[in-house]
Design a protein around this nucleic acid. Sequence first.
DNA 1: TTTTCACACGAAAACGTTGTAATGACCACC
DNA 2: GGTGGTCATTACAACGTTTTCGTGTGAAAA
Lengths: 341, 341
Amino acid sequence: MKKKVTIKQIARELDVSVSTVSKALRDSKEISLDTRQKVQAFAKLLNYRPNNIAISLKNRKTKNIGVIIPEIVHHFFTTVISGIEREANKAGYNVIVCLSDESFDKEVINMETLANGSIDGFILSLSKETQAKKDFHHLQEAINQGMPLVMFDRIAEEIPCDKVVIDDVDGASKAVKYMMKTGCKRIALLSTVDYVSVGKLRTEGYVRALEESGGKVDESLILKIEDIDNCEKQIAELFDRAGFDGVFAVNELFAVTAMKEAQKRGYKIPEDISFMGFTDGILSKYAFPALTTVAQHGPEMGEMAAKMLIQRLESDEVDDESYVTEVIRTSITERESTKSN
Amino acid sequence: MKKKVTIKQIARELDVSVSTVSKALRDSKEISLDTRQKVQAFAKLLNYRPNNIAISLKNRKTKNIGVIIPEIVHHFFTTVISGIEREANKAGYNVIVCLSDESFDKEVINMETLANGSIDGFILSLSKETQAKKDFHHLQEAINQGMPLVMFDRIAEEIPCDKVVIDDVDGASKAVKYMMKTGCKRIALLSTVDYVSVGKLRTEGYVRALEESGGKVDESLILKIEDIDNCEKQIAELFDRAGFDGVFAVNELFAVTAMKEAQKRGYKIPEDISFMGFTDGILSKYAFPALTTVAQHGPEMGEMAAKMLIQRLESDEVDDESYVTEVIRTSITERESTKSN
DNA sequence: TTTTCACACGAAAACGTTGTAATGACCACC
DNA sequence: GGTGGTCATTACAACGTTTTCGTGTGAAAA
């Protein structure tokens, strides 16, 4: 087990100074061509690789980006991460992923450990608990310390930083209108409790679509699901109590679960009931029938977030406070759970 | 934007030396109780946080673990990551995730960038390309440099390092036997091409189960799918050409796709045909009907891998070469796509 | 009074780099 | 024979810590 080779070793063996080696390796013309070649050859021979940590310490940059998400076992977030990764790697950055597990405390702890030198900037999506608590001091603190921050998807309006979101209201509204166009008259909504920002916004979109097309909102068709793991029961109850010919769900899980319930009850999809979900994930794609959804374009979102962060990191430190919020467009992925129009 | 506060600043303001501050902060009894309290109070006031990079450089430990996986948009890997995360955080480590995108080159590059000081050890699962190429020099090199390495799931037998796998052969064999017990007589196999190690092993399990129960393998019932994105067509062809009353797939995607095909053709599940998959992911859980699968216990795998790595990292550097391979047990998750027995 | 010792603290080196300023050698010019 | 100017190289400080090894002070022991 040969130990890592350092500049110092090369210097000693070649009988020159550390500075000479350092400069030779970076091809500084301060060093004679002769020495440069000699050093480089020797470095290559020893398989020298500069120590990232030392470099980080030296120029106070780590070339690491910290990403904090609530849950990795969640297809949408992984698509965002893969977008971040791609963009970050392109610019020579590594991605450090931390999970908040939807917990406020873990979110704070993760931020604190990362902020102390490990990374140059943050990309994050809020945990449910943080959204419910509305306590954002940790974000503000990071910003105060001059640590750039980009929020995505689950954001906090009140924090001054770059953001990238999708237009949830518009996406949901488009979806509901789409369903109406295919002939749906009574569309049920499967949403989450209101403190989940995206749930709230998508509900808003549902309401808006109905109102804009002259319909009115029937509260009995709206189901707000608290416990995502036990949504079956609540959904079954909705089937018991209300009649509808369309279901719009704010995520794919609810949509698929509802489809299963419908099939168990003998409904034909989409003839009897149409279904649409939000988030174009694997579930939607492989459900039976395949689910028509609002695609969120996670990878693009990740790329965008990474791009914004990196730009700020590399923009000569002039911290102009002109924060922007980018909106990623949604699109409808038509599949088999809705009627063709 | 207040800049990060350092020990040096505290020292200057309190008019003591850096050493004193450092010691006081770590509660060294070399320093008088009085000074200790004064320093600590002041540090707290300024919200001092030690700089991780400097500490890393000093003691040549980063407290970071590098994880390289082929694809993050793959449920199994994310469950493993969440297991790694949990275990790593418990021990005060951060997780740096890199994606190889199933590419050999990206795998090598990722390893190289991480190895130069960013992390203390690796956890990785091979990319398909690496498996096909059988070129493992980058792994060997990491090991030679004294960088501990734990491989999981897609491993290379010939590399001397700790490994954690599931018993694919046994899992597949158990699954097939389970199906036979529920009455299946002719079980088709949906597998991948052979260079994907797990596909090969699971195929082996399928064959073994058949042989052990006195049956013989009908090659026409075995489908090896190359292109995962276009599996529908190949699967449809299998339906055209062969008759069977059970389908065992080496992953959940193939299983679900096959179920859809069966339903389109009017077969009842599980009455006419039973289905089983491998990997207990969301697809299986929310498919209709819900898919009976072999659960791989990704989180446990991740925890195990992290535990092994951390143990090696913290075991006083005595590099005893006694590498172990841990086998995570599989279990069958019974759901609706198979008959009850 | 001198020696010894505990005590509280500080100076400096080290981790591996990079960049600035300094050094020395050599040559040319007046 | 100075003065100036290249040129190649090196010393050193710095990044923020930790840690080893002093060092000076005062009090107890001789």
